[in-house]
């Protein structure tokens, strides 16, 4: 990734070396694309689409947000409005349907909410330009790209998903 790592308010996440690197890179690019609030929402969304488990990190720690940071200013720039409008709309929908800000919901509550998105049961005034369902469908594709694609695109930190699949040796 380009840009110098900076110590940010998210630096406290640095419990492990991996998470630390994730947060620093995120911080360095925050000013350029995602606001602090949007970065927090994008991380919570990534961790709901690809949740962390005992063995393997979730989407956020694996670099899905830094993938978006990089690609939304590059080849995926046409999706920039989708996130700039969609992330706050996601939060507002969480407030309307679950009574809390999206990142403050428990993982199970976030999953339940996104299932409503998927079924088309979350539409409302927050989504005037595109549907909540469309937003989720694109976000899922992009999260999978960030998690399973090549690390040089900003995600899949250290090839973590390839290690999870047991194919690190064949993927170079």
């Amino acid at each position: 990734m380009d840009g110098k790592p900076k110590i940010t308010r998210r630096g406290f996440v640095a419990a492990s070396a991996l998470a630390g690197a994730a947060a620093e890179t995120l911080g360095a690019q925050q000013a350029e694309f995602f606001s602090a609030d949007n970065a927090k929402l994008a991380a919570a969304l990534a961790d709901t689409i690809i949740p962390p488990d005992d063995e393997w990190p979730g989407g956020a720690e694996a670099g899905v947000v830094s993938y978006l940071e990089k690609q939304l200013r590059g080849p995926l720039s046409r999706f920039a409005p989708l996130y700039l409008i969609g992330l706050p709309a996601l939060d507002a929908t969480a407030l309307r349907l679950a009574g809390k800000s999206f990142p403050d919901l428990s993982p199970d509550e976030r999953t339940a909410l996104l299932q409503q998105f998927e079924k088309g049961e979350a539409e409302g005034p927050e989504w005037p330009d595109f549907s909540a369902q469309t937003f989720l469908a694109r976000a899922v594709e992009h999260a999978m790209q960030g998690f399973y694609g090549a690390p040089h695109h900003g995600g899949n930190r250290g090839g973590v998903s390839w290690r999870m699949l047991g194919i690190m040796d064949v993927m170079h």
Partner: peptide
């Protein structure tokens, strides 16, 4: 298992090969 979530990740891990 659907297209996302814990079950999808578990599916990838168990069945990719």
């Amino acid at each position: 298992v659907g297209r996302w979530g814990a079950a999808h990740k578990e599916f990838m891990r168990s069945y990719y090969k």
